[in-house]
Amino acid sequence: MTATTELKNIISEENKVYGKTSVLLDNEMHYCPGCTHGVIHKAIAEVIEDMDIQEETIGVSPVGCSVLAYNYLDIDWQQAAHGRAPALATATTRLMPEKYVFTYQGDGDLASIGCAEIMHACNRGENIVVFFVNNGIYGMTGGQMAPTTLEGQVTATSPYGRDCQTTGFPMKISEMVSLLPGTRYVTRESAETAGAVRKLKKAVKKAFANTRENKGLSFIEIVGTCSSGWKQTPVQSNEWMKEHMFPYYPLGTLKDE
């Protein structure tokens, strides 16, 4: 058998082991090459398909790079003002308690301008899932310092490296929300390898299962990259993330009750 005929044999519908879930729309994503948002969107979409909850899920998108998340997942969406996604999600779950409601927020949106809303939604134990994408930088506005920017990290507004004496310290949001009694599940994940993505999907599944069981708020932080903001290639970004982000933002489950 020649190589070409063998390939033809393999590439057939019954041999398909991985492809695009129907919960993801065909729209091309506007994200930069290698952006972690795409992988996280896909992981959420795949879990929604696996759990067969597409008709019952409502997403709340933030302001930031993922403002247009509603162009990619084929579910109903609300697009929140900057930082306010947990407030929208609160009303949505209170008024439609049988639905699966999630917010999808970046570090500027959740940890800076939306700090009050996320803390209080967590404290009230709203029955929602929060996806917190932490890449330590403002992506959409052009790479400015975020509350989660690492000490010494160079950004557009910390051009000489973040000086913690004047700008404060990188905020460990997952640790903070895990102290609140309203949160039931708090975990920090990543999405740079196949193994990490599988783990992330497991966490997403658990979080939506918590919603189904009316357990309260599940908080999933995903440490990701921003190649454009970090001014590195996507592959270099993953290496930089492992070397610098993971030691300060250690992966793993912080709370599971």
């Binding site: 929140a80 003002a81 407030a87 949505t92 209170r94």
Partner: peptide
Amino acid sequence: NMVYGGASC
């Protein structure tokens, strides 16, 4: 913003 979320429903 809760009103915005609720109104959206």
